[in-house]
């Protein structure tokens, strides 16, 4: 069997995590290509619906990456996002998806290394968990598998 390559959606806030991802680029710090970045102005913009939808569409893991606590460009969007992530984790557990597939992280704009490390760490964590339990089980794939 082909090695499982996790697909991670990373919602990154423009001011910190997205910039940190750019910084990782300028420092040429590589991380797994399966980490896909969606830019949002603030993690406070990340709706629980977006998190669930990412899993529904086949993500193996979801990362919400914002500023460090206290550093939010919009005061406390990251704190609100963290609460929403906790709420969504409970929903995931009800669905039967391991809550640890969803993760919140904070980093500052200059922390390219932290971004690359976080991206690598979540990928490894998800790799250990295996593919998302709701993936590949719908009718079209389910039959094939």
């Amino acid at each position: 069997m082909e090695q499982f390559e996790p697909v991670i959606v990373a919602f990154c806030c423009h001011y910190c995590a997205y910039t940190a991802a750019d910084t990782a680029g300028s420092q040429r710090l590589s991380y797994p290509a399966g980490v896909k970045i969606v830019r949002v102005p603030c993690t406070g913009k990340v709706d629980a619906k977006h998190l669930l939808t990412a899993f529904e569409k086949g993500a193996d893991g979801v990362l919400v990456a914002g500023c460090l606590v206290g550093d939010c460009h919009f005061k406390d969007g990251n704190v609100k996002a963290a609460r929403r992530v906790e709420f969504t984790k409970k929903y995931l557990q009800e669905i039967g998806i391991e809550a640890e597939r969803l993760e919140m992280a904070g980093m500052s704009a200059g922390q390219g290394k932290e971004f690359a490390e976080t991206a690598t760490a979540i990928t490894e964590k998800i790799r250990a968990l295996g593919p998302s339990p709701v993936k590949g089980k719908n009718s079209c794939c389910g039959k094939a598998a």
Partner: peptide
């Protein structure tokens, strides 16, 4: 949210 959750939960059970 519930729509997503129901779909995923159903899919999980095949």
């Amino acid at each position: 949210l519930l729509a997503s959750a129901l779909k995923m939960a159903a899919r999980k059970s095949g």
